[in-house]
Design a binder for these strands. Sequence first.
DNA 1: AAAAAAG
Length: 469
Amino acid sequence: MKFAEIGLSDELLRAIDESGYDEATPIQAGVIPSVLMMRDIIGIAQTGTGKTASFVLPMIDILAHGRARARMPRSLILAPTRELAAQVAENFEKYGKYHKLSMALLIGGVQMGDQVKALEKGVDVLIATPGRLMDLFERGKILLTGCNLLVIDEADRMLDMGFIPDIENICTKLPANRQTLLFSATMPAPIKRLADKFLSNPKTVEVARPASRNENIEQFLVKTSERGKRDTLRSLIDSEKVHTAIIFCNRKTTVRELAKALQRSGYSAGEIQGDMDQSSRTAELDRFKNGTINILVASDVAARGLDVKGVSHVFNFDAPWHPDDYVHRIGRTGRAGAQGRAFTLVTPSDDEAIDSIQKLTGYKIPVHGVEAAAAETAAAAPSEAEEKPRRGRSERGGRGRGASKPDKVAAEPVDEPKAAPAKAPRPRDDRKSAATPKPAPAPRRDDQDGPDDGWNGPMPGFLSVGFGS
DNA sequence: AAAAAAG
């Protein structure tokens, strides 16, 4: 469905057009008309499906008329992390450029002064993380009685982070006859209860089944050892022709150490994790988005919802403890129709985690063959001083259970690589390693995602075998 | 087991 047929204003259509969009995604086609008719919505979708625009666009038109009063925001969007809140704000700026809507972004980690000032002037759109919102509310800086539109974004993540009581609290402070939109990638029971309690006669729009496999993402397990992880990762990065990658670790300390190690090895890498102050977090994310760095080492702060265009690879340096996190992490690639590859380093102690991931997704992730061998070589002759070889040790995972069960064979062929558009060339990465010259990064569009935002996926020239379970 | 979010 075309945006022009969806019932949006001309000014908005112009902004959409200038952002390079024409066709609405399924979630947008399902949600936007109903929001314009003032219905409550339950949207079951992950980001990358165009979910954010599905509420931002109609909100801009709904809020186009009328005027905000001091301390009385007209609408409220709740997001679980600061980065996601900022991302929503960027969308309002992009699509609202022909409207004069006022907006405030209320997130922690930054000075309150500007936020309070904006509130005093009156805002049409308030975008907030729960903590800072509650804080300012309790200080009497916000009145929610005039807030007729509420969006709860990434509700399942809010649940994971223990925000549900806050959300309920906030809901009771809004007028009862408001419009409420709730978005969630999955629908666990507590979220259903929340929806039953605070939405009236909602329309449910579902575009991707939770934990269903995104066919655009090729997944692999890479067997390694605790000690061999860094070398395994480096050889993977080198052999994979990485354009842009996010590397997930389970711990903030691991994030920091790995980012440093990669920098020392000459990679153009940065980090993002919750112990960094907000300005560094934002700065690192910007460097990644604008191509100054092409590798971002991250904690799960970046696992969900983060929308960076054209991420070609996700590496799980650590297998995530919770299977849900796996789904969210790999979802940072293969977005908006592009192809992506996701590699998870597994050590023998990760068997359980991998089991539960495979159970959740119903997909047996093939083992990547070549790198496992490379890891053993690497472990026997580490390139970095801190990685002492430890000999005479079995690198075999799975306690031999699955080793004799090579059921799945060849990796699926990569789909026809899409030609990348030749505009906005990214800065080159500056790896110093001359032995393995990096391919020039594909050009990248920074303004939006889109199906043409691809890169040339390498054809895997190896066999994969099944992982024992 | 960790991370995130208020400070």
